[in-house]
Amino acid sequence: MFTQVCNKIFNQSIAAYHEHNDVHQAISNPYEKSSIEHLLFLKNWIDTVQWHLEDIIRDPKIDPVEALGIKRWIDRSNQERTDVVEYIDSYFLGQYSKTVPAADAAINTESPAWAIDRLSILALKIYHMQEEATRADATPEHRAACQRKLDILLEQREDLGTAIETLLADIAAGKKFMKVYKQMKMYNDPSLNPVLYKTEK
């Protein structure tokens, strides 16, 4: 099943990041660049680095200049994340390019890749909640509360995986069809963000 492949690669990416646990470390993607596995690893790596940037920027003692630099880093990361999601959707468009949708085929509220985006984030939540549920210096109450949350996250991943597999099967059977709308982000575009284009004059 495709989502099992996703979960395996996401866990692999998270484990690779935490070997050094450094937001500045270079990615070491083990998969062929033209493969879907490469895109899945890259997608989760971006998410993992951003997860830790979000932790760092919440330090109440952080230097404001450093915080601004991290905020801009997060903005770039969000754009990269969106780009990779669109590449993954392009893969699915290729996979189902010969499928003829039925006359009554419906479109889903989100594309397969955006659902896989949520699966990647869930992998990170599960990893870090597992850490908290087993943290030796935490109270028993803290560990128990985190274990309950972890159980819910694991159930959520199971349900999301089932939903994604159903969506892919429906697209393959022509019961649903997909479109890819390029994300028209405005804040990073100097021609669309008024703060940026006004400063250029």
Rank of each mutant, 00 (worst) to 15 (best):
I70E: 01
G94A: 02
A136F: 06
I164H: 03
N78F: 03
D83H: 08
D89I: 07
E131M: 09
P30H: 14
G94V: 03
E66M: 06
G174L: 00
K125P: 00
S191T: 15
Q12L: 11
Q50C: 04
Y197G: 13
Y187R: 07
D104K: 09
T82Y: 12
K179R: 06
Y91E: 10
A106T: 15
E19P: 01
H38W: 11
K179D: 01
Q183V: 13
A136P: 03
N78L: 01
N7A: 09
E200W: 15
N193I: 00
P64F: 07
Q95L: 12
R72D: 13
H24L: 10
I62N: 02
L154H: 10
I107K: 14
F92L: 10
D59A: 00
N193Q: 04
P60E: 12
S120A: 14
I164G: 05
G174T: 02
S120Q: 01
D170K: 07
L39G: 07
D159L: 13
T99N: 03
V100Q: 10
I116T: 02
V85K: 15
K98N: 09
K125Y: 05
R118F: 03
A115I: 00
P194G: 09
Q147E: 14
M1T: 10
S34H: 11
I107N: 09
E141Q: 12
E158C: 02
H128E: 11
Y181N: 07
D63P: 05
R135C: 05
T166V: 05
S97K: 13
M1A: 11
H52F: 01
C146D: 05
L154F: 08
G94Q: 03
E131T: 11
A115Q: 08
A106I: 08
A15F: 04
F2N: 12
F41H: 15
Y197N: 14
S120F: 02
A136Y: 04
K33G: 10
K125T: 01
L122H: 09
R143F: 15
Q183D: 12
D104G: 05
T109H: 15
W45T: 04
I121V: 14
L124G: 09
T134E: 11
H24F: 11
L196H: 10
P190R: 07
T3D: 13
D117W: 08
Q79C: 11
